[in-house]
Design a protein around this nucleic acid. Structure first.
Lengths: 107, 107
DNA sequence: ACTATACGTAAGCAATACCTTACCTGTCAA
DNA sequence: TTGACAGGTAAGGTATTGCTTACGTATAGT
């Protein structure tokens, strides 16, 4: 069983543009919810709910600093995505080789 | 504007395990719908509907051989996914460097 | 011409996703 | 202690997804 064991599906988590944008923002370091929500037109509770999805997918972790909830990026589960996509690189290469062979044979 | 211009979102398309499995199957070459559907417990129309999503995301192309509809893998749009995920590799590397520095300084 | 095969699409339905408002707890500051 | 701030969660509505069955169209075989 891959990274997303607890219950969240990484592929589902990153399917939402909002959640991808949240992750992108978190690349600059831990950010409190207030600052995260500031970048979106949706309500703060909506952001909290997106963060929940990311948390269940283990893509972010939460820590408490006073009354602020800092969210921190945890890119680990993205390796599953990367691994899956990478499987298609070979397919591309094979196709390119096939094309080259075709061109060669037609020469 | 990325690969998925026509209307389909690649990230959404690959969020479904069924659709990922369909793509995986297509790596072995063009396959008619009948053979694709054989690998799943859902109905054939359901598979057709998943294929529609993949088609809108430009992840597959369709060709007609007699009464068979051959589906062919087009991994191009996956580059968008790959590109996005790759952005997080640097994050990982930075974190590892930071960890090494921390370990070094504590030595 | 008739029948079977291959497949898309429409209609209908249950489940889920996503948003909002309202409310709650916990923390800081005066 | 009282009020403001930070943020999770519940409730409820609407939109979308994902499936099924039923049906329509095109091709292949007899």
């Amino acid at each position: 069983m891959p990274h997303d064991a607890p219950g969240g599906d990484v592929f589902v988590a990153i399917a939402s543009p909002v959640r991808r944008a949240l992750l992108d923002t978190l690349r600059q370091g831990p950010v409190p919810v207030r600052d995260l929500a500031a970048g979106f037109s949706i309500s703060r509770p909506a952001v909290s709910q997106h963060l929940r999805v990311l948390r269940l997918a283990d893509l972010v972790s939460e820590s408490w600093v006073g009354r602020e909830h800092q969210y921190r990026l945890n890119p680990g589960p993205l390796q599953d995505v990367r691994a899956w996509v990478t499987g298609y690189e070979q397919f591309w290469k094979d196709r390119l080789v096939g094309l080259r062979d075709l061109l060669d044979s037609g020469r």
